[in-house]
């Protein structure tokens, strides 16, 4: 069951989006549960009690525009995927600091249905990649961490240290880096060095000049020659999916 929220000030547009979404999801045999909202307060109220997988968000709305809502969600540390829907093909948006999952224009939705299908497939792909890890800290308290919240993983003898946005100090797991490597790769966490695995999503810059990655939290990690190609490729593919 895939939980979809649609926030659009015009009910007719919501309905249109829902119609196309239902079609697309049923094509790939995934059931959806959709909730439509016309006002942002309604949506935030519903968000308190429900969990959504994705939000289709209209950009141009009278009270609060889409970007403001996205920023609010981000400030709330909500990791909900957002897909902006614009009803103008020539839209220009102001710079903002929320990484959207996708932009869809009116044409994309109604005429170029393959784009919607591509987006939906990617959404389901991403949901598969959202895995919860059970880790513990030094005082043996357990933490539940989503794979999206991991910055990087460090190999420390028989343990793996997870550096996450959840905690300031590393969280640990007793495991072997070589055994975990293949599995973590399927979650977009790739090996860049004998000692390190990095979540591709958390890379801010891949600095080829100095053979290092700079992560969103400012950490700099070295890339070793063995893993350079693999890292570059994974990063490129990640960027492809964000445009």
């Amino acid at each position: 069951m895939y939980k979809v929220a649609i926030l659009d000030d015009s009910p007719e547009d919501s309905e249109e989006i829902l119609y196309h979404l239902t079609n697309t999801f049923s094509e790939i045999h995934v059931r959806i549960k959709a909730s439509c909202f016309t006002k942002s307060e309604e949506f935030f109220k519903a968000l308190k009690n429900n969990e959504f997988d994705v939000l289709f968000l209209d950009i141009v709305m009278p009270e609060q525009n889409g970007f403001e809502i996205a920023k609010k969600l981000r400030d709330m540390k909500n990791e909900l995927y957002i897909i902006f829907v614009t009803h103008h093909n020539d839209l220009v948006y102001d710079s903002f600091d929320y990484a959207p999952f996708q932009f869809l224009t009116k044409d994309d939705l109604y005429k170029e249905t393959y784009l919607l299908k591509k987006t939906v497939t990617r959404l389901i792909d991403h949901k598969k990649k959202d895995v919860i890890f059970e880790l513990f800290d030094e005082s043996k308290d357990t933490f539940e961490v989503s794979s999206r919240e991991i910055y990087y993983i460090e190999n420390d003898k028989h343990y793996l240290n997870y550096y996450t946005s959840v905690s300031d100090h590393p969280l640990r797991e007793r495991a072997n880096i070589s055994e975990r490597e293949e599995y973590l790769k399927s979650l977009d966490i790739v090996r860049i060095h004998r000692k390190y695995l990095v979540n591709i999503k958390s890379i801010r810059l891949l600095d080829n000049q100095y053979d290092q990655v700079i992560l969103k939290n400012g950490t700099k990690l070295p890339i070793s020659r063995t893993y350079k190609k693999q890292t570059e490729m994974a990063y490129k593919i990640h960027i492809r999916t964000t445009v």
Partner: peptide
């Protein structure tokens, strides 16, 4: 033509 900005990147496609 797409120029999209996210938290850490400006991407032109």
């Amino acid at each position: 033509f797409k120029a999209i900005q996210s938290e850490s990147r400006l991407t032109i496609q």
